[in-house]
Design a protein around this nucleic acid. Structure first.
Lengths: 136, 136
DNA sequence: ATCTTCTTTAGAATAATTATAAACAACGAA
DNA sequence: TTCGTTGTTTATAATTATTCTAAAGAAGAT
């Protein structure tokens, strides 16, 4: 069980004042056992369902972006009309079930180490992401 | 140098009649030595520049989608507001220069084989894509 | 040539996201 | 507390990528 204090800490670290709305967003994002993959629209709907209170779409966008910037959320590179985020910010990879439009975490040992044997002058590697698309 | 006949063949294979507009699109897409990474907007502008003739945006979208469906273009999974395509349809991976918003092909030997050690019942692997983000 | 079918196009419709600005809430100092 | 400042929420408008539509035009077969 994640406590409200932890949410407040995350918010403050992200330069956000802890408001009722943002605490509700945190409840949905971080008060869970397993990793959570979502789109803004998923999150927006879950807030209403889980907390009974409506938070405006703009606030959901703002808060998610601040958490993403601070590193509390990870954006998943995928071709979709919507942007997907992940509460698991560790270095890991994904299955994407194209039909169901659902993401599944892959453990690093499921993929093995990836060694990039090439470099671009003046650039350094920021992230390495493997996306495994699944079909029936 | 790719010939007009090849463009017509690609179009017919994609169930598209070879029209002036579509030939122009092919000129920009396929008449080049190196692989070509683009967004619809890139392509739209290049057509005007390279052929001197304007093709409507709707036609560009339609043609690109038909080529993609037929396998003459590959869609690259990346987080961007725009969709990226690649004329290199072989199995390969990418660098993405986040600052420049530019893609660079990675040869398979630059990445090494990727063995996915996990499977999901009832699903099979459609593709494995590695995206290496670059920063300064 | 003519007829049918497909195509092009401008513009409208849709959908995700971002911007705006007015009402409101958190914070800190007195 | 109270008050003033600063940050926040919200509905709504604006923006942007993409898809849809329907009328005018071009390709293909006969």
């Amino acid at each position: 069980m994640t406590s409200k204090q932890e949410f407040i800490e995350k918010l403050r670290n992200s330069s956000l004042r802890p408001t009722k709305q943002r605490i509700n967003i945190c409840e949905v994002l971080f008060n869970r056992d397993k990793t959570f993959h979502f789109t803004i629209s998923d999150l927006f709907n879950l807030i209403k369902d889980k907390t009974g209170e409506k938070v405006s779409l703009a606030t959901v966008y703002n808060t998610v972006h601040a958490f993403h910037k601070k590193g509390y959320l990870k954006e998943i590179p995928i071709n979709s009309n919507q942007t997907y985020f992940d509460t698991n910010v560790t270095d890991h990879h994904h299955f994407f079930d194209v039909k169901e439009e659902k993401l599944i975490d892959l453990k690093n040992e499921d993929v093995g180490p990836i060694e990039i044997q090439r470099s671009i002058p003046g650039k350094k590697i920021k992230s390495v992401e493997v996306l495994v698309k699944l079909e029936d």
